[in-house]
């Protein structure tokens, strides 16, 4: 499988990956690569800060469009510190659960709050 490296710093134009709109740019490029059967390497070189809002659009929504197996075999991250790796892991775990059973998750979360009672 041919590999393409996407440099996040260049795509965002900044060391700070904060906004969902910037994540959307990354998502669009990943999808273009996937459609052509390429393997995508995301390089976070020179990126100093990443929010979950950015990661949700950049990576999280891929789980809506592709299977876990496809993403696992076609996406890789490099030049990233462990703290940000943990953040990505949290986003991917959340995305897997979200797209698996959005309705069930929502109902459970509402019941939990109602079960705690109105403590105003």
């Amino acid at each position: 499988m041919e590999t393409i490296e996407l440099k996040i710093y260049n795509i965002v134009g900044n060391q700070l990956c904060i906004e969902a709109e910037d994540g959307q740019k990354v998502y669009t490029l990943i999808k273009k690569g996937f459609v052509e059967g390429k393997k995508i390497i995301l390089s976070f070189q020179n990126v100093s800060m990443i929010t979950t809002a950015f990661l949700n659009t950049a990576i999280g929504q891929l789980y809506r469009d592709y299977t876990e197996e496809k993403i696992k075999s076609s996406l890789e991250v490099v030049n990233i510190d462990q703290d940000d790796v943990r953040r990505i892991k949290r986003v991917t775990d959340t995305a897997k659960a979200f797209y698996k059973d959005r309705e069930g998750q929502l109902k459970k979360s509402i019941s939990e709050i109602l079960g705690e009672g109105n403590d105003d």
Partner: peptide, 27 residues
């Protein structure tokens, strides 16, 4: 029909998001 307090509590719980198409609720 959450009270304001309940809505805040719901929003700060991990993985709870009001979005329907994209994941969220982690920040």
């Amino acid at each position: 029909n959450f009270t304001a307090g309940q809505a805040i509590k719901w929003a700060i719980k991990d993985r709870n998001t009001t979005k329907n198409d994209i994941t969220g609720g982690i920040g």
